[in-house]
Amino acid sequence: MANTQLKKDLIAYSKLIGIDKIGFATADPFVTLKSRLKDQQKLAYQSGFEKGTLTERTEPDHLLPEAKTIISIALAYPSKMKNPPKSVKGDRRGIFCRASWGEDYHHILKRKLKLLEEYLQQAEPTARSKSMVDTGELADRAVAERAGIGWSGKNCAIITPEFGSYVYLGEMITTIDLPEDQPMFDQCGTCNKCVDACPTGALIQGGQLDSNKCIAFLTQTKEILPDKYRKKLGNRLYGCDTCQVVCPENKGKDTHHHPEMEPDPEVVKPRLLPILTMSNRDFKETFGQISGSWRGKKPIQRNAIIALAHYKEIESLPTLFNLLHEDPRPVIRGTAAWAVAEISQEEEVLKHLMTAKERERSPEVREEINKSLQKLKVQSGLV
């Protein structure tokens, strides 16, 4: 018999330790999700960051034998920054998405789940449990939806009535049988604002995402970004909030329950130029505490170069020229070659590109240089 009192005790304890929402779901296989994931694979919509096999991602008892219940938790994060610094000419700034503000949420949720696990273990010494946050095999959204935390929106986020989609999710599989909550189903209705607003058309239809087009994914890649996406990035250094910002369910939602989630404006809206010359140690000291640093320095620096091109920041040219000639990484040299031609059409840019071309050995960088030279020649009427 499912343990009703234990569930009540867990809910009460979750509030004591600062969990904003908690829900309980069966550990039955996610049959619909499995079918959907197969379609995602066929269509090549997956990002490559997904963990585990299809079976592990949809059948909880493969992760924890004799699994009975999945406990889903949600922690609400801020959507507004106090006193954000302004990005002005000569002092341009980039932006990290809201989900990367404050301390890395993986650490925060893991601490909460550990406390919850320990509480359950004390109450039921025979309990076996397995917790995960975001990088685990289970699909957080599918679990949260089944557990009644919120519904899965067309923006591919869980939308809660209380906090909108500004929530972090985590879950704990357990062998203890606990009463399940009612799933929360779609409440987006005919609203299509997120799909219409997506800068790259990554939201294919309600609730389906082509990860390879999603700016949040693109900002985390480590290669030279395809031409068609560069101008879509704007000043984003990590992640994208567009589909959340336009969502009517997020209007007026701004939660400040957790001091460790509060953003440091200088970290999450940083000056762009200093990023380009950061050492690995500087990068770690500046950004190491936030989740947006997990892919390392190179993607952030590449995105900072693209952001400077977005602003057409003339003052950045000396630094970009130096990167074009001296940086050991082809991705940085190639992106700099593109950026300088976006920023200025002066003869100085042409000279630097010609010099760089003579010395460059990387085929992908040479291609970027050639495209920029061609662009400058067309603009100057030389071809």
Rank of each mutant, 00 (worst) to 15 (best):
287 F>K: 08
268 V>R: 11
285 E>I: 03
249 E>Q: 14
258 H>G: 13
241 D>L: 11
266 E>Y: 14
285 E>H: 13
253 K>Q: 07
259 P>M: 08
265 P>H: 14
287 F>G: 10
243 C>N: 08
257 H>P: 07
290 I>S: 01
256 H>N: 11
260 E>H: 05
289 Q>C: 00
263 P>S: 01
275 I>G: 03
252 G>L: 02
246 V>D: 02
291 S>Q: 06
243 C>R: 08
268 V>H: 11
262 E>H: 09
265 P>K: 14
286 T>F: 08
253 K>L: 03
245 V>D: 12
268 V>A: 09
254 D>I: 04
249 E>A: 13
278 M>D: 03
238 Y>K: 05
264 D>S: 14
244 Q>F: 04
262 E>M: 10
260 E>S: 12
276 L>P: 00
291 S>N: 10
265 P>W: 10
290 I>A: 01
239 G>Q: 12
269 K>A: 09
241 D>W: 10
251 K>M: 08
237 L>H: 02
288 G>A: 02
287 F>Y: 15
243 C>Q: 13
251 K>V: 12
257 H>C: 08
290 I>C: 01
241 D>P: 15
278 M>G: 02
275 I>A: 01
270 P>S: 07
262 E>C: 01
271 R>V: 05
246 V>A: 02
245 V>K: 11
274 P>C: 13
285 E>K: 15
244 Q>I: 04
283 F>I: 00
251 K>F: 11
285 E>D: 15
287 F>V: 07
257 H>D: 13
268 V>C: 14
247 C>L: 02
289 Q>R: 04
237 L>N: 03
238 Y>M: 12
288 G>K: 06
268 V>F: 05
263 P>V: 01
255 T>P: 00
289 Q>A: 11
283 F>N: 02
278 M>V: 02
273 L>G: 00
265 P>M: 14
270 P>L: 03
277 T>M: 03
253 K>M: 06
263 P>I: 00
288 G>H: 06
275 I>V: 13
280 N>V: 02
242 T>L: 06
249 E>R: 13
244 Q>V: 03
254 D>M: 07
261 M>K: 06
240 C>D: 15
255 T>C: 08
263 P>F: 01
264 D>W: 09
268 V>D: 08
245 V>Y: 03
255 T>Q: 06
259 P>R: 05
248 P>K: 04
272 L>W: 12
282 D>Y: 15
261 M>S: 12
251 K>A: 09
270 P>W: 09
262 E>Q: 09
289 Q>W: 00
242 T>E: 14
270 P>Y: 07
267 V>M: 04
280 N>C: 02
272 L>C: 04
273 L>C: 05
267 V>I: 15
274 P>H: 09
247 C>I: 03
268 V>E: 09
240 C>L: 05
269 K>M: 15
261 M>I: 09
286 T>S: 15
274 P>A: 10
262 E>G: 01
255 T>S: 11
276 L>R: 06
246 V>C: 04
261 M>D: 11
254 D>N: 15
249 E>W: 15
281 R>M: 10
289 Q>Y: 00
243 C>L: 08
